[in-house]
Simulated scan of single mutants.
Amino acid sequence: MKSVFYIFLFIPTFLSAQINESDTLGVRAGLSLTGFYQGGNVETVIFRAKTEFSFKPSKKLFFKNQNSYVYQEFGKNKADEDILSLNFLYLHPERKIYPFVLGFVSTNFRREIDLRYLFGAGATFQLLEKEKYWLKLSLSSEYEETYFSKTDFNYSPYDGSRLINTFRGTIWANGKYHLAEDKVILNHEVYFQPSLEQSDNYRWQADLGVEFPIWKYLNFKVNYRHAFESIVIENQKQEDRFLTFGFNLKSY
């Protein structure tokens, strides 16, 4: 007998797809949990958790934290177990141009990354800032260390060591737009992150989401993510694509 269970649990407090650090609201926090289980010929387990938290410790500062955890198992074989923590501290985010510092920590089972962390600083430029839409461009520089579980890579100069460290530069573009009298909400986030020391070491990612409001607190969402990483473990693919469907529940 085949059994299937779907679990969609949202415990939101000001939960949204993108937190705009230039908003005047002092505190935002949210938690979302989704799960899927199928038993039978091919046992499948999928669990995803995401937290978002931001607050203004003072009139000048704004702190933003986003954490996510993903676990996937097919036929009792683990396919994914990833952790990602993004942390930003902004100074005067209400201005047209404002600085920030950042710190990221992540793991990636599929890419065999045991630990990756980077920290750096940069500046954001507000190109558009309206009630119904906004567009921002950011430039930053970071120091990064990545510890892999293996030492054979698709580029032989990196073979022999689990650690790859480098300084990077990053250009980010992200925005959100309410269209067709708020019947469609489009959001995007794109970044390109080359090494400043190694020309063959770079990555990029593009996220595109479309939301369709169902009622005041609930949107149906379609999201597409395309990610590329130039340095990977030998015989791994450099590109990943994800197309997801779901709901965005909010309390405002």
Rank of each mutant, 00 (worst) to 15 (best):
E144N: 04
E144W: 08
D152W: 12
E129Q: 15
K150D: 13
K130M: 02
S156V: 15
T151E: 11
S140H: 01
Y143W: 13
P157K: 04
F125C: 01
L128P: 08
K150S: 11
L139W: 11
S141V: 05
S138G: 05
T151N: 12
L137D: 03
T124K: 06
K132S: 14
Y147H: 13
P157D: 07
A123R: 00
K132I: 02
S141C: 13
D152R: 11
L137P: 04
S149M: 14
K136Y: 09
Y158E: 05
Y155H: 10
E131V: 05
S140Q: 08
Y143M: 08
L137G: 10
F153G: 03
S140T: 06
T124D: 12
T151D: 12
D159R: 00
W134Y: 11
T151Q: 15
Q126P: 00
W134I: 02
F148Y: 10
L137K: 09
F148Q: 01
Y158L: 08
Y147R: 12
E131W: 11
E142M: 09
S141N: 11
K136D: 06
G122F: 05
S138L: 01
F125Q: 04
A123K: 01
Y147T: 12
A121G: 13
K130Y: 07
S140V: 03
A121T: 01
D152I: 13
S138Q: 06
N154T: 06
K130E: 08
E142T: 13
L127W: 07
L127V: 08
D152N: 14
E131N: 15
G122V: 02
N154H: 05
Y158H: 01
Y155N: 11
K132N: 11
T146H: 07
